[in-house]
C-alpha cells in the first residue's frame, strides 16, 4: 500500500497556546495511499495536529514536510500547497452565499484557473459521486448536515488533492447521518487516497484505517495497526480511553 517516500512527515513538532503545550514533540510520517486515523480524548491535540499539516495552525518548533517540501510561510507558495491538501471541517464551512455547485467549482476556477464549463462538469460528477447531484442549485442552509458534509468532501476533492485531512467530520452530525458521510470516506480510502482522519468513530478506525494514532496531552502515545491497537493497547492511557468509550 505504501510506496516510495512518505507524503507527510512531521518531525519533533511542538506547539504552544500560551502556556498550554498542545503538541509535545510529535513525530509522524504518513505514506502515500495510507489512511491514518487519529483518536484520543478531547484536548489531546489531535485537531491541532490535523490543522498543522496545511498550516491553518502554525507550529512553534519542529518541521513539517509535504511531498518532500517543507511547509512554506504565509503567501503564494502556502496557498499552492493548501490547494493540494483537501480539508474537511467538523462544522462543514460551506460558503453560505454560494450554491452547492458554486461551492465545489470556486477552487478549481479561481485557484486552478480551470474553464468554468470544465469545472462545472467535474463538480457535477463529484456531487453525483457523493449522492447529491440533484441538490446542485440549492444553498448550503437548505441541506441536512450529512448532505453538507458530503458537499464539503466533494469541494475538497474538486481540487484533486494529494491528501485529505478530516477534522472530526462526523462530530457535528445527527447519528443517522454519520453513516452516509463515513460511506463516502470509506470509498475514498479504498481508492487509495492518502487520508489523515481525526475522529471518534471507532468503527471507521477499525475497518478503514491502516494505522491508528492515539494521542493524549499533546503527545503521540501509540501508533499501531487498528487490529493490534484495539486488541492490545500498550499504554495505560489508551486502555483507559478505550474502556470508557467501548463499554457503552
Amino acid at each position: 500500500m505504501t510506496t516510495g517516500e512518505p507524503l507527510i512527515v512531521l518531525d519533533s513538532v511542538n506547539k504552544w497556546f500560551g502556556p498550554l503545550h498542545v503538541l509535545d514533540d510529535v513525530s509522524l510520517s504518513v505514506g502515500r495511499g495510507e489512511v491514518v486515523v487519529v483518536i484520543g480524548p478531547s484536548g489531546s491535540g489531535k485537531s491541532t495536529l490535523c490543522r498543522a499539516i496545511n498550516r491553518l495552525e502554525p507550529i512553534s518548533s519542529g518541521t513539517i514536510t509535504f511531498d518532500g517540501q517543507p511547509l512554506p510561510a504565509e503567501g503564494k507558495a502556502l496557498a499552492k500547497l493548501r490547494s493540494e491538501v483537501g480539508m474537511v471541517f467538523q462544522s462543514f464551512n460551506l460558503f453560505a452565499h454560494k450554491t452547492i455547485l458554486e461551492n465545489v467549482t470556486l477552487g478549481p476556477v479561481k485557484v486552478r484557473k480551470e474553464k468554468p464549463a470544465a469545472a462545472r462538469e467535474r463538480g457535477l460528477a463529484l456531487l453525483d459521486r457523493v449522492g447529491i447531484a440533484n441538490q446542485a442549485d440549492k444553498f448550503p442552509a437548505q441541506l441536512s448536515g450529512g448532505q453538507q458534509q458530503r458537499v464539503a468532501i466533494a469541494r475538497a476533492l474538486a481540487m484533486q488533492p494529494k491528501a485529505m485531512l478530516f477534522d472530526e467530520p462526523t462530530s457535528a452530525l445527527d447519528p443517522e447521518m454519520v453513516g452516509e458521510v463515513l460511506d463516502v470516506m470509506t470509498s475514498l480510502a479504498s481508492e487509495g487516497m492518502t487520508m489523515v482522519v481525526v475522529t471518534h468513530e471507532m468503527g471507521f478506525a477499525r475497518h478503514a484505517a491502516n494505522r491508528v494514532i492515539f494521542m493524549a496531552d499533546g503527545q503521540l502515545v501509540e501508533d499501531a495497526p487498528p487490529a493490534e491497537f484495539f486488541a492490545n493497547p500498550r499504554s495505560e492511557r489508551a486502555r483507559d480511553f478505550l474502556s470508557k468509550i467501548l463499554t457503552h
Binding site: 496545511n54 491553518l56 503564494k76 496557498a79 499552492k80 500547497l81 493548501r82 490547494s83 493540494e84 491538501v85 483537501g86 480539508m87 471541517f89 462544522s91 462543514f92 464551512n93 460551506l94 460558503f95 453560505a96 470556486l106 477552487g107 479561481k110 485557484v111 464539503a152 469541494r155 475538497a156 481540487m159
Partner: peptide, 18 residues
C-alpha cells in the same frame, strides 16, 4: 462572517485577496 468561512477558503488555496 464566521471564521470557518475564511478557513475553508484558505484551505482550498485561495489567496488573501481572493
Amino acid at each position: 462572517v464566521p471564521a470557518g468561512q475564511a478557513e475553508a477558503a484558505r484551505s482550498l488555496g485561495l489567496t488573501f485577496g481572493q
